[in-house]
Simulated scan of single mutants.
Amino acid sequence: MDRYDGFREFVHARQQSLMRTAYLLTGDTHLAEDLLQSVLTKVAGHWPKLLRQGSPEAYTRRALINQHISWRRRTRRELPSAHPPERGHSHDDSTVDRIVLRQALMRLTPRQRAVIVLRFYEDRSERETAELLNCSLGTVKSQTHHALGRLRVLAPELAHLLVDAEPQEVNR
């Protein structure tokens, strides 16, 4: 039996979803690829243990978030400009909205960005988000609230996207 039995299949099945999460965290395709590669290298080293525990995807997503936060702390890179691109005739409104939203996301704290990505892009529940981020349910709720408020300030032109952004959980 190979030490990496199932790892290749896991990567093949979840690569696009994990890459999307990495991209939403970093805002850059090349950084997202580097982040995912770095995390998958670590996951491969822990693969037999992760299989026994039955949580390779949760571990991988948590590792993506933790690695991204670690990189941000080390580099303290300059954030993208808050100024939205000028509206030209070559882009439709949805394209401009995506660009503005991505720039606004990059101006959130790493924890706030992680909460927004998990809650709204990955469509995770508050409880799942708390488990992935290894924090309390209350922290997820407050970080979501603060992040959405900050997005409304950073990108008021996206108010139409953020109107019903705070979903209500059935089991509070």
Rank of each mutant, 00 (worst) to 15 (best):
L40Y: 07
L40A: 07
L40N: 06
K42Q: 14
V43N: 04
G45N: 03
H46R: 15
W47C: 09
W47S: 08
W47T: 06
K49I: 11
K49Y: 10
K49E: 13
L50R: 03
L51P: 02
L51Y: 04
Q53H: 05
G54I: 09
P56I: 00
Y59G: 04
R61N: 09
R62D: 03
A63N: 01
N66A: 08
N66E: 12
H68C: 04
H68G: 05
I69R: 01
I69K: 14
S70R: 13
S70Y: 12
S70W: 09
W71F: 01
W71Q: 00
R73G: 05
R73N: 02
R73D: 11
R74T: 08
R74W: 12
R76M: 14
E78T: 09
E78C: 00
E78K: 11
P80G: 08
S81T: 09
H83N: 14
P84W: 00
P84R: 04
R87Q: 09
R87G: 02
H89G: 05
H89W: 12
H91G: 00
H91N: 04
D93S: 07
T95W: 15
T95S: 12
T95L: 12
T95E: 15
V96T: 08
V96L: 13
V96Q: 07
R98I: 01
R98V: 02
I99W: 06
V100S: 02
L101A: 14
R102Q: 09
R102C: 03
R102P: 01
Q103T: 05
Q103M: 07
A104K: 11
A104E: 10
A104T: 08
L105V: 01
M106W: 05
Q112L: 03
R113L: 08
A114N: 08
V115M: 14
V115K: 11
V115I: 15
V117R: 08
V117Q: 06
E122G: 01
D123A: 14
D123R: 12
E126D: 12
E126K: 11
E128K: 12
A130T: 00
E131C: 05
L132M: 04
L133F: 13
L133Q: 11
L133H: 13
N134V: 12
N134H: 13
N134K: 11
L137S: 02
G138C: 02
T139D: 09
K141P: 01
K141M: 09
S142M: 09
Q143R: 06
T144R: 15
T144Q: 14
H145P: 00
A147L: 12
A147S: 03
A147W: 07
L148K: 02
R150P: 03
L154G: 03
A155P: 15
A155V: 11
A155N: 15
E157C: 03
L158R: 04
L158K: 06
A159D: 10
V163G: 04
D164N: 15
D164S: 15
E166K: 12
E166C: 08
